[in-house]
Design a protein around this nucleic acid. Structure first.
Length: 567
RNA sequence: CGGGGCGUGGCUCAGCCUGGUAGAGCGCCUGGUUCGGGACCAGGAGGCCGGAGGUUCGAAUCCUCUCGCCCCGACCA
C-alpha cells in the first residue's frame, strides 16, 4: 500500500490524557482514537494488527479441533437467569429492554449461550468431545475503565468452550488449549508467564493464566527465574526471608509498657527490635459472620485469598473498632493472642518454631515479650501470608520476584456448573443421562496488541513483532522528487509484493526526517531506506528494534528482509 | 461510590488569581525555496473558551448547577 493514500494520523506530541506507554503510543502512532471512557475506535493500523492476531488465534484454535462460530452479543435475560448470572454479574453487565419491555443484556462472556446451543443439539456421547469458539465483541460495564485499551468496556475476545463426557476428556481439552495458547502467544512475539491461578470459591477446578510483565498491569505474579516457578500472588507460596535477629531466651510472657506505640513499625523502633521479631495481629470477620484473629510475622501481609480458602469463606472484612474492643478489651495496636478465647486464632506458618516474640498484650499501651506460639497460646498453623520480593522458592531456595503483569489469556476447567444448572446432558454408551463436563478458555485480543506495545517500546515509538505488525516492511523513499529513487522504490515494492511481504511504500512528499520518525513511531519491524546510494545500486536495510543497519544491493534487499522475516 | 485533577482552533498548552470582548507552538491550506532524523520564508483558514443558569455596564476569567475525560482508591465473572 502507498502511505500517501492512507489514513495514519500520527501525533507529534504525546496526548495529554494517556499515561501508560501502550495507551500513549497507540494514540500517537495513529492506531486508535477514543470515543468515550473505555470505548475506542480502532483505526486502520490497529485493525490490521488485530486481523493478524485473530488469524494466528484462528489457526491455532483450528489446529486443536476448534470450530469457529459467531454468537450474538445481544442476549435475552432468560438464558442468564437459568445459570443464575443475571443476578450474579451485578452492575458489570450492560442491560437494556426491547420495545416490549423484555430484558436483554450485552454478553460479557458466552458460557450460557454456548451451553444453550449444546443442550439443544447434543444428544449422545458419540458427539463428544466438542470445542467451539468465537472471536467476538464483549461488553463489560467496568466501574473504572483505564489505561487505554487495557481495561475497557467493549473489547474483542476469543472465547472457547469444550464439552466432554468425562473429567479425563476435559483434561485433554484443557491441555490442548494450554498448548495452543503457548503457540499463539509465542507466534505473537510475546514473552509471557504462565501461572496457576486461583480457582476461586467455585470449587477445586483447575485454572491457568497467561500473563505479560508490564508496569501498567494490575495483577501480581510471583516468579522464579531460576526454576521457572510462577504463580499468582494470591496463590504463591515461598520460604520467607529468615528473621533478622535470632529469638531470645525466655520462659513466660511478660508485660512491657509501650505508651502510644501502635503500629508494627512504631513498636519495633521503640523496642529496638526488627519487625521480624514481632507478631502482627489482624482481626477479620467472614461474610458468614465468623471472627478470626490472624497472626503473622511483623513484616508480613495477610493474603486475602489464602485466608478465605483456609476458613472456607467467600469474603471477609476487617473487624470494626467496637467489635475489637468487645472481644479484646483493648484497641487495635495493642492486640495479641495470649488469653484470647472469644474467637478462633489462626497462625501463619512463618511463626512455626519461633519463640519469645513480641505481641500486643490486649491492654492499651502494653505489649508482651516472650510470647511463644503453642506454649502461650494454641497455634493452628496455615499458610496465610502474601509472598514478597526477596522470599525464596520453597523447594530450591532460589530467589523469587514479584512482577506486575497484564493478563492476556485464561483457561479454566468449568466442570458441571453450566451443564447442571442449564440441563446439558447426553446419553452414555449404557444409555443413561449424564451431565457434560465443560471448560472455558479466553484470550483478550486487544490485550495482545497492548502487551506488545508495553513490552517493545522506546523513546521513538513501538517496535512490533513482525507477526502482528500492521506491515512487515516499510520502503522509505527519501526524496520523492528524485525520479531514480522513486523508480527504485517502486521496483522494490513490486519485489516485496511478489515475495509475499506485507509492504508499505512511504511515497509521501515529506522530508526524510518526517518519514523516519513516523516509521519508527508506528513500529514497522523492517525498513528499507532508498536514498542517494541508489546511484551505486545500494539501499539501507534497518531493523526497527535494534536500529541495526546494513547496506544491500538493490537486487538483494528484499530477499534479505524476506529471509530475516522467516527466521 | 469516595478522593484528586482537567475541559480554551485538529494536537500540546498559555490567558483565569486581579472581569474589558481570545493567544502561542505544532498541524492544516496557497505560493516559493529546500530534501538523510519531525526544514525555511511569505500569505491564509480555523475557536459562540464543554453545557445551562446567575452576578455584572461587561464573563474564558467570579458564583451555582450540570455533563464529559484522566488519575488514585473501592470493585474486577
Amino acid at each position: 500500500m502507498y502511505w500517501s493514500k492512507l489514513f495514519i494520523p500520527t501525533l507529534r506530541e504525546d496526548p495529554a490524557d494517556a499515561e501508560v506507554a501502550s495507551h500513549r503510543l497507540l494514540l500517537r502512532a495513529g492506531y486508535i482514537r477514543q470515543l468515550s471512557a473505555g470505548i475506542y475506535n480502532y483505526l486502520f493500523l490497529a485493525q490490521r494488527s488485530i486481523l493478524k492476531i485473530t488469524q494466528i488465534v484462528r489457526e491455532e484454535m483450528d489446529a486443536i479441533g476448534g470450530q469457529e462460530m459467531l454468537l450474538p452479543a445481544l442476549n435475552p435475560a432468560e438464558v442468564w437467569k437459568e445459570s443464575g448470572r443475571w443476578e450474579g454479574m451485578g452492575q458489570n453487565m450492560f442491560r437494556l429492554k426491547d420495545r416490549w419491555g423484555h430484558d436483554l443484556c450485552l454478553g460479557m462472556t458466552h458460557e450460557e449461550i454456548m451451553t444453550y446451543i449444546a443442550r439443544g443439539e447434543l444428544r449422545s456421547y458419540k458427539q463428544l468431545p466438542q470445542i467451539w469458539y468465537q472471536i467476538q465483541t464483549k461488553f463489560r460495564d467496568e466501574p473504572r475503565p483505564k489505561s487505554g485499551l487495557l481495561r475497557v468496556r467493549q473489547f474483542i475476545m476469543k472465547d472457547a468452550y469444550s464439552f466432554d463426557l468425562a473429567p479425563e476428556g476435559l483434561d485433554k481439552s484443557y491441555d490442548a488449549h494450554a498448548v495452543a495458547y503457548r503457540k499463539i502467544f509465542t507466534r505473537c512475539g510475546l514473552d509471557f508467564i504462565e501461572v496457576e491461578a486461583d480457582s476461586g470459591a467455585m470449587g477445586g477446578s483447575q485454572s491457568q493464566e497467561f500473563m505479560v510483565a508490564s508496569a501498567a498491569g494490575e495483577d501480581f505474579v510471583v516468579r522464579c527465574r531460576a526454576t521457572g516457578y510462577a504463580a499468582n500472588l494470591e496463590k504463591a507460596v515461598s520460604r520467607p526471608v529468615p528473621p533478622a535477629q535470632p529469638d531470645p531466651e525466655g520462659d513466660a510472657p511478660e508485660e512491657i509498657h509501650t505508651p502510644g506505640q501502635k503500629t508494627i513499625a512504631e513498636v519495633a523502633a521503640f523496642l529496638s527490635l526488627p519487625e521480624t521479631s514481632l507478631i502482627k495481629s489482624v482481626v477479620v470477620v467472614t461474610d458468614d459472620n465468623r471472627p478470626f484473629l490472624v497472626l503473622l510475622r511483623g513484616d508480613h501481609q495477610l493474603s486475602e485469598t489464602k485466608f478465605n480458602s483456609a476458613v472456607g469463606a467467600k469474603e471477609h472484612r476487617a473487624a470494626h473498632p467496637d467489635e475489637i474492643r468487645e472481644w479484646f478489651q483493648a484497641d487495635p495496636g495493642s492486640l495479641g493472642p495470649v488469653g484470647v478465647t472469644k474467637l478462633k486464632v489462626l497462625t501463619d506458618k512463618a511463626l512455626e518454631g519461633r519463640q519469645n516474640m513480641v505481641s500486643g498484650a490486649n491492654r492499651n499501651d502494653y505489649h508482651l515479650k516472650n510470647v511463644t506460639p503453642g506454649r502461650d497460646f494454641m497455634a493452628e498453623y496455615h499458610d496465610l501470608r502474601q509472598v514478597v520480593s526477596g522470599d525464596t522458592e520453597l523447594e530450591t531456595g532460589a530467589a523469587l520476584d514479584v512482577v506486575k503483569t497484564v493478563e492476556i489469556g485464561h483457561i479454566f476447567k468449568l466442570g458441571y456448573r453450566y451443564s447442571k444448572s442449564m440441563g446439558l446432558n447426553v446419553l452414555t454408551e449404557s444409555g443413561e443421562e449424564k451431565a457434560v463436563i465443560m471448560g472455558s478458555y479466553g484470550i483478550g485480543i486487544e490485550r495482545i496488541l497492548c502487551a506488545a506495545f508495553e513490552l517493545y517500546n522506546d523513546k521513538d515509538g513501538v517496535s512490533l513483532p513482525a507477526s502482528i505488525a500492521p506491515f512487515a516492511l516499510v520502503l522509505t523513499v527519501t526524496n520523492l522528487k528524485d525520479e531514480a529513487l522513486l523508480a527504485a522504490g517502486n521496483d522494490l515494492y513490486a519485489q516485496a509484493k511478489a515475495a509475499g511481504i506485507d509492504v508499505l511504500m512511504d511515497d509521501r512528499d515529506e522530508r526524510p526526517g518526517v518519514k523516519f520518525k513516523d516509521a519508527d513511531l508506528i513500529g514497522i519491524p523492517w525498513r528499507i531506506n532508498i536514498g542517494k546510494k541508489v546511484a551505486q545500486g545500494l539501499v539501507e536495510v534497518v531493523e526497527r528494534r535494534t536500529k541495526e543497519m546494513v547496506e544491500k544491493p538493490l537486487a538483494e534487499a528484499i530477499a534479505y528482509v524476506a529471509d530475516r522475516l522467516r527466521g
